[in-house]
Amino acid sequence: MELQVTSLDGKSVGKIELADDVFGLEVRQDILHRMVRYQQLKAMSGTHDVKNRSEGVRTGKKFKKQKGGGARHGDRKAPQFRGGGRAFGPTPRSHAIDLPKKVRALALKHALSAKAAAGELIVLDSVTTSAPKTATLRTTFGKLEWLNALIIDGAAVDQNFALAARNIPHIDVLPVQGINVVSILKRNKLVLTKAALEALEARFA
Rank of each mutant, 00 (worst) to 15 (best):
G142M: 00
I151F: 04
G83T: 12
V173P: 07
T136D: 02
A149I: 06
I179A: 03
F141T: 02
A107I: 04
D158T: 14
D158K: 13
S94Y: 14
Q177V: 03
Q177R: 11
K102F: 05
T134K: 01
L99H: 08
K101A: 10
P132N: 13
V157C: 10
A165V: 05
G74I: 01
S126H: 13
H73A: 02
V176N: 06
L150N: 06
L112M: 04
T134R: 00
F161H: 10
N148S: 12
R166W: 00
A71T: 00
L144F: 03
R72Y: 02
V173R: 05
P175Y: 14
I171L: 11
T91Y: 08
I152E: 01
L108V: 11
I152H: 06
H170Y: 09
T129M: 14
T136E: 02
I171H: 06
A96F: 03
A162L: 03
A164Y: 01
V176S: 07
N148Y: 10
V157R: 04
K143P: 11
Q80Y: 01
T91R: 15
G178F: 05
N167T: 08
A162Q: 06
D98C: 09
E120W: 05
D172V: 14
H110E: 10
I122R: 11
D153Q: 03
V103E: 10
I168W: 02
A118Y: 07
K77P: 08
A149Q: 04
T136F: 02
K102Y: 13
A71R: 00
L144H: 00
A165R: 04
T128S: 12
G119P: 15
K143E: 15
A78P: 04
A114V: 09
V173E: 04
T129N: 12
N160F: 08
I97H: 00
V157T: 10
V176K: 07
L163Y: 02
K77F: 11
V103Y: 10
A156I: 09
R104C: 08
T139R: 03
A78M: 02
H95C: 10
A114W: 15
